[in-house]
Write a protein that binds this DNA or RNA. Structure first.
Lengths: 223, 223
DNA sequence: GTTTAATTCAAACACGTGTTCTAATATAAT
DNA sequence: ATTATATTAGAACACGTGTTTGAATTAAAC
């Protein structure tokens, strides 16, 4: 049948476990579900991976490698204005967070770990998170005074990320507050990204929140 | 309801279930734990409440009533400057979120529901969330131009709340990025509240983030 | 005091979970 | 072909969960 493509049950498990874990998370995903999805015997997980947790770590590792090969972090040319970089960063963030359903399971799984890291493999989650964080800090450094402390930069980064993640994590909350129409009309990823970008730029003294379309303008609206 | 209370095991269960649910959440809290903590027979939960879920709803209802009688939302005098109101709001938020351990279990439980609402009783969670949200929107309205749309106000409110909630929800992430010392020195509730307040005010065109230490932060302004 | 209902208690039940066991089978080396 | 090893299969195990049961006990009513 299959020459040597994807038949070794180990790979089938890895694949199936990926989507099941991505859908349900570590706790709620059962070994039986995974084996059933992989069309593999129940004992196979323990035979090939030792136990459920080791399988999870393995899956996460693969997802991490796959994903960051296929979807590397954006890299701008040095000359790009930092406002543009921030805008891109936020938009990418919102896309990843809110459209993860449509993306391959790797993205979903990593997003899940980023948002609710499992106590199992913190070290691994760090590897997904830290690059994103430093990228953002780098952009923010271009947008803040020279003498800004590292601590303040980090808090600012958390302010940006906090805004983004909120819409993913607290979708239920948002749903109870804004109407269906409002959400359809004004709470789509692009619009949210624009709001967050403008809010942040305004906080950093670049542009103002509501008045002008100021993403790349030079208006020094100070008060 | 019943004039006579004190010991009826029902109350003991309610009390014990409160702290156990607050600590571990609905899923991870076991009926055995609760009954053991209440020093009550295992079957008592089912006898008095039907099942675990009905008990949870009951507990949440009580917590909600208790908490909002004891700790009502802050109400300022009309004359208070809106900057002060925002500062108070954010600080209260951070205290509730980050110091919930020290607060009675009701706060912890409600915070938990606010942050990860259980599918069981969404309607109940709404009752905790909406007042907070409208309070914030009210404050923000004073801080934004008249013509600001309701939608923009709401996004701005989510920007504020997102920043606050981030430190609660993603504590693990923060821990991987900032060092222990940094956290002890610069990431305490008061300092985070100040950053968030200044970030937000700056975004709204009031004050600037890093330069001046103008805003209300240290001044003991109790009302 | 007797009777009746409500409550407590210990034990067991039903079920889902991760894991392990042993025999059967495929795969490869000799 | 024979042997040795690696893998699979299905069943069973061990354990934790919420829930139920039925007898024992208490409290109340008559």
């Amino acid at each position: 049948m299959t020459a040597r493509n994807e038949d070794p049950t180990r790979d089938r498990i890895l694949q199936a476990a990926g989507v099941v874990f991505a859908e349900r998370g570590f706790e709620k995903a059962t070994v039986r579900d995974i084996c059933s999805a992989a069309e593999v015997n129940l004992g196979a997980v323990n035979y090939h991976f030792g136990d459920k947790q080791k399988l999870y770590v393995e899956v996460l590792l693969c997802a991490h490698q796959d994903f960051y090969k296929k979807v590397p972090l954006p890299q701008w040319s040095e000359s790009d204005p930092p406002e543009q970089k921030l805008s891109d960063f936020v938009r990418t963030m919102m896309y990843r967070l809110l459209l993860a359903e449509g993306l391959p399971w790797q993205a979903q799984l990593l997003t899940r770990e980023m948002v609710t890291p499992s106590e199992a493999c913190r070290e691994l989650s760090e590897r997904s998170i830290k690059p994103i964080h430093s990228l953002l800090v780098g952009v923010l450094r271009e947008l803040t005074p020279e003498e800004t402390s590292e601590t303040d930069l980090e808090k600012t980064a958390f302010s940006v990320i906090g805004q983004c993640v909120f819409y993913k994590m607290h979708a239920p909350v948002v749903e109870t507050i804004v109407t269906e129409e409002q959400r359809a009309d004004h709470f789509q990823p692009d619009q949210l990204a624009e709001h967050i970008t403008r809010f942040t730029l305004s906080a950093l003294g670049r542009g103002s929140l509501f008045e002008l379309t100021s993403t790349v303008s030079e208006t020094e609206a100070n008060s």
